[in-house]
Computed example of a mutant assay.
Amino acid sequence: MTPDVFDCVAAYVRRVCGEEPICVHLDDAQECQIGQHPDYAKFRSLAVAARAARKPSHLWESMVAMGRMSDMDGDDKWRMIITDCLIPFLRARSWSISRNLYCDLRDVRSDMFEAALDTWKETAKGVPPQEVPTLMTKAAISSAYRRANVHENESSTSDIESLLALEEAVLDSTFKASSIIHDADPRDPTVAEQIRGEHTGALWQKYGLIEAVNRHHEDLRTGRRPGLRSSIATETMLTRTFVTGRNYYYYTSDFYPKFIDLPAAAEALGIAKSTAYRMVRAGSFPCPTTHMGRSYQVPTKALMHSLSIVDVIVHPDDVENGAAHVGGNCR
């Protein structure tokens, strides 16, 4: 298989770093006072793990600082190291966008790479180092979805919606497969619909939300909560006669709170809290806001739109199958 841009970045970084120990403080392990330094393979593993923990990381702050210093010397080594360490969070997302929205995988990954590097340049000043990796990742994923949306507009398969887009791509290999695709064509709209629901369930299982989701499903099935009206459901959905309850379909946003407070929305958008309040007062905040009591609130659906998170329609049966699949209890 011909290498894509992700493969080329990985090959370049490994060639530049070789087998030498990596120092994120001075870029020279011989001059650093720390006794031990990992080789690049180990260093990358530590960086990816720190990023996956979704917590502030001194390692990533040092990486970004080293990247900025390298830029001043006209050296792209650390810029490429940072990109390479973000690639694990983009590979699975690029694969799902390519497969489910019928885009060329190499084109999707090229767009991601270009958007990530553009964001690296744009955040050279005025952006805290700890925010840069998140902004690079979000820009890469948004760029891929823009390509997918253009492609979908040119396609006859407009009935097929994209998979749920979360801030970080899931690294667990169990999310790369579905329990129903072994002998099925993922280009079939019915199959794509099932896969979409199963991936959603798998993600919610991963993040410990499935019990609350199941309560939501119980409300749908007992009539305590309305599902989609038939007039909203697509023709594909109505042909799935084997699912239980056509009116059980629901938007994923139905499960979320209707509003999110402004600081949380600003964090998700990569905007500083103080800046967010100034933008609201100036009318330039990316999402509409409403004043509730003593605080500003942002509609969840508006925030999802700003983050290019597609509000997909799923069926409880598919969601539960996906959750059971990754939980080791396939049905």
Rank of each mutant, 00 (worst) to 15 (best):
F89T: 05
M80S: 05
L90A: 09
T83A: 04
D75E: 12
R68K: 14
R99D: 06
S70D: 08
I97V: 15
M63T: 09
P88A: 10
F89W: 08
I82D: 00
D75L: 08
R68Q: 10
I81Y: 03
I82L: 14
A65V: 01
L101P: 07
G67K: 05
R68V: 07
D73Y: 15
W95T: 12
D75V: 09
R99Y: 07
D75P: 06
M66Q: 01
D71L: 14
S94M: 10
L101A: 15
V64N: 04
L86N: 00
I82M: 09
R79P: 01
R99G: 11
D73H: 15
R99Q: 14
R91E: 12
L90I: 11
R99L: 14
S94Q: 06
S94I: 07
R93V: 14
W78C: 05
V64Y: 00
R79D: 01
C85P: 02
R79E: 05
R91W: 08
N100V: 11
I87H: 03
M69A: 15
R93P: 02
D84P: 04
P88I: 06
D84Y: 02
K77D: 04
F89L: 14
I97W: 03
A92E: 10
F89V: 08
L90Y: 06
D75H: 05
T83V: 10
S62G: 15
S96D: 14
I82A: 08
K77W: 09
L90K: 03
D73E: 15
I97E: 03
P88M: 11
I81L: 07
S96Q: 15
W78G: 01
M69S: 15
M72C: 13
T83D: 03
C85T: 08
M63Q: 07
A92P: 09
M69F: 11
R99N: 12
I97Q: 02
A65N: 09
K77C: 10
M66N: 05
I97T: 07
F89R: 03
D76S: 12
I82P: 01
S94C: 13
D73P: 12
D84W: 04
D84K: 05
F89A: 11
R79F: 06
C85M: 09
M63V: 15
I97M: 09
T83C: 05
S94R: 02
M69D: 14
T83N: 07
N100M: 15
S96P: 05
S98D: 12
W78E: 00
M66T: 00
M80P: 02
G67F: 01
N100Y: 13
D75Y: 06
S96C: 13
D71T: 13
M66I: 05
W78L: 00
G74D: 07
C85Q: 02
M69C: 13
G67Q: 01
